[in-house]
Simulated assay, not measured.
Amino acid sequence: MMDGRLLDAATSGDPVAMKHLALHDPAVLLGTTPQGNTCLHIASTHGHQGFCTDALVLNRSLLSAVNADGETPLLTAVTSGHTSLTSFLLKWCRDLQLSEAILKQDERGNNALHHANRSSHRELTLELIAAEPALSKALNQKKESPMFMAVMRNYPDVLEKLLEVPD
């Protein structure tokens, strides 16, 4: 279970409190809520990039943690509409070669590209395609591909980028 003080720190974006807790017990960062959220999930939901930075410096494994909805912190950030934080987490995943964390699909089969596309975050959508072209191949439970979604939303620039992906 997640320490209540860590939950408060992640919710409010207080990296000082989080670092203080981790100094005394580094494993505290791995605690989860009943929904399986880590402190990085919680901070991603609220868009606290500074907190995320400091948490990742202390424990990079948080990037790969999956909650009860099948979401990594990257997916949590994009579903919460925090595009700059999503870009930030995407860079961390790429730098650490965590393709699995980038490609992860939630319980409905949506990946970060599905969510970015659905939420009309075109720049992020294009960034995700460039960073991890394999995102374009995933189908969600409704059998929707990112390409289908781009066509339905009339996003010719996104469609063009998707057509450049091999296969």
Rank of each mutant, 00 (worst) to 15 (best):
V57S: 09
P73Q: 07
A150I: 07
C93P: 11
P15G: 12
A27P: 01
L96Y: 13
M1I: 15
F51L: 11
L6A: 06
E107K: 15
L62R: 14
V151M: 10
H20T: 14
T86I: 13
T11N: 10
D167S: 11
T32W: 12
E123L: 07
I102K: 03
A138H: 05
N37I: 07
H46R: 01
I102R: 03
P15K: 06
I129Q: 01
T125G: 05
F148S: 00
S44L: 03
M147T: 11
L103V: 05
M18W: 05
S120D: 13
L103Q: 06
A101P: 06
P146L: 00
E164G: 05
H115E: 12
H48F: 11
A17C: 12
H41M: 03
E71F: 00
V16Y: 02
S99T: 00
L163R: 02
R94G: 11
A9P: 01
P26H: 11
V57F: 04
Q35K: 08
Y155E: 08
A116G: 10
K161P: 01
I129P: 00
E144D: 14
G70T: 04
T33Y: 13
L162F: 03
N110K: 14
D54T: 10
S84A: 02
L113C: 00
H48I: 04
L135Q: 04
R153S: 04
L139T: 06
L126T: 03
R60S: 11
A27M: 09
L89N: 12
R60G: 14
M2D: 15
V165N: 03
N111T: 05
Q141Y: 10
N140P: 10
W92S: 14
S120F: 12
D54F: 12
H20C: 09
Q105S: 07
C52A: 15
K142E: 14
G36S: 01
A116I: 03
P133A: 00
K161R: 03
L40T: 09
N117E: 10
R60Q: 15
Y155N: 12
D14V: 10
S61A: 09
M18S: 12
P26A: 07
E127R: 10
F148T: 03
H24W: 02
D95S: 07
H121W: 12
I42P: 03
E127C: 04
L128R: 02
I42D: 06
E132A: 00
W92V: 13
H20G: 02
L56S: 09
A65C: 15
D157G: 08
C39P: 05
A138F: 00
S80K: 03
L135C: 06
N59Q: 09
A17T: 12
Q97C: 08
H46D: 02
K142L: 14
R122F: 09
G109H: 09
L75E: 01
A116R: 04
D106V: 07
L128N: 00
P73T: 03
S12Q: 15
N59R: 15
T79P: 02
D54P: 09
N140W: 05
E132S: 02
L62E: 14
T53C: 06
V158S: 00
S61I: 07
D8T: 10
Y155T: 07
G31I: 13
M149G: 01
I129S: 00
E164M: 05
D54H: 11
S64A: 15
T83Q: 11
K104V: 01
E107S: 12
T125I: 02
H82M: 09
A17R: 14
M152A: 14
H82D: 07
T125C: 08
L89C: 15
L6I: 08
Q105A: 07
S136K: 00
R60E: 14
